[in-house]
Write a protein that binds this DNA or RNA. Structure first.
Length: 295
DNA sequence: CCGGGCCCCTGGATGC
DNA sequence: TGCATCCAGGGGCCCG
């Protein structure tokens, strides 16, 4: 099939963004809350992005929280007085599973590929972090060390589904910059958790060209509403289906059939029928409607 | 301080 | 058919 006809959502590669990470979080809550980690293994690969993981041994996971695309698990005892947390980012291809711990002496990852870390819990289950492309990160860090260990988390913008994400915040943030609006959405400082899929979707919904360098307040208000609406709908459907991402229980999300822009280049715009166009903005593939979304 | 651009990595798709 | 090359992309990092 020529690229101009589009890939079709079913075969799209995809990356966990806020809705996908939130879905993972909700599935992890009953499995991890209150559990003590009794043993830890992690990939010794030199490019592996692990920090302080040895400090997980004999710690208890108090809760499973989320900020943007990061999963945060406060640990007990908290040590260092500032509340150390397990901070996990799935990167592009990271996924988690929770299954009964393998019997002693057996291959702990029999039949599984790309296992980068294992956490054995005190209830006889093992959490596995699998990540073919090794872009994921796993750190044990207190908030006052975010800047050194997970710099994006240190400067993360407001949660888009919290009261702190206001039209004024978005409008003023966009007004302070001449970068393409899509680049600002991908930059986690303005708003947390939006990635390539939902940036394209929100801009299509708000009828804003992804390359726009000036977004006045009325359109910022439309964009704000679109971000909130789309992320809420995606969470309700447990995110978007894609090939190499799996949630804890092995299922995948159901938002794919709702995608209006992302990965739909070559197909007609649902609003006006114009063929959706693909371009590159901020080094990311970008799909938009050249008729509905004007600079 | 900000932002553009490059880089990390590896499976899948594409090209010859 | 098989090998080589290209491409995807979150975010860290460098540099202007």
């Amino acid at each position: 099939m020529p690229a101009a006809e589009g890939n079709g959502a079913g075969s799209l590669p995809g990356v966990p963004e806020l809705p996908e990470v939130e879905s993972v979080r909700r599935q992890l809550v009953p499995r991890l809350s209150g559990r003590r980690i009794v043993e830890v293994w992690w990939d010794p690969h030199p490019q592996a992005r692990f920090h302080g993981v040895d400090r997980l041994r004999n710690r208890r996971i108090e809760r499973v929280e989320r900020r943007g695309k990061f999963l945060l698990c406060p640990l007990d005892p908290a040590t260092e007085g500032h509340g150390e947390q397990l901070v996990l980012h799935l990167g592009m291809t990271g996924s988690l599973s929770v299954e009964p711990t393998s019997e002693a002496g057996a291959d702990p990852d029999a039949g599984l590929t790309h296992v980068r870390a294992r956490l054995d819990l005190d209830d006889g289950h093992t959490v596995r972090f699998r990540d073919p492309r090794r872009f994921g990160r796993l750190s044990v860090v207190a908030p006052d060390a975010y800047a050194e260990v997970v710099p994006t988390l240190a400067v993360l913008g407001p949660e888009p589904l919290s009261p702190g994400f206001t039209v004024a915040h978005l409008a003023e943030g966009l007004a302070r910059s001449r970068s393409p609006v899509k680049a600002r959405l991908l930059d986690q400082r303005l708003v947390a958790g939006v990635g390539n899929i939902y940036a394209d979707e929100a801009l299509w919904q708000a009828r804003i060209h992804p390359g726009s360098r000036r977004v006045a307040r009325p359109r910022a208000a439309l964009l704000h509403a679109a971000i909130v609406e789309i992320l809420t709908a995606a969470i309700e459907r447990e995110g978007t289906t894609f090939r190499d991402y799996q949630m804890v229980n092995g299922s995948s999300g159901r938002y794919a059939t709702f995608l209006a822009a992302y990965g739909q280049h070559g197909r007609p715009c649902r609003r006006c029928g114009t063929t959706l166009r693909r371009t590159v903005i901020a080094q990311r593939g970008t799909t938009y409607c050249p008729t509905c979304q004007r600079i």
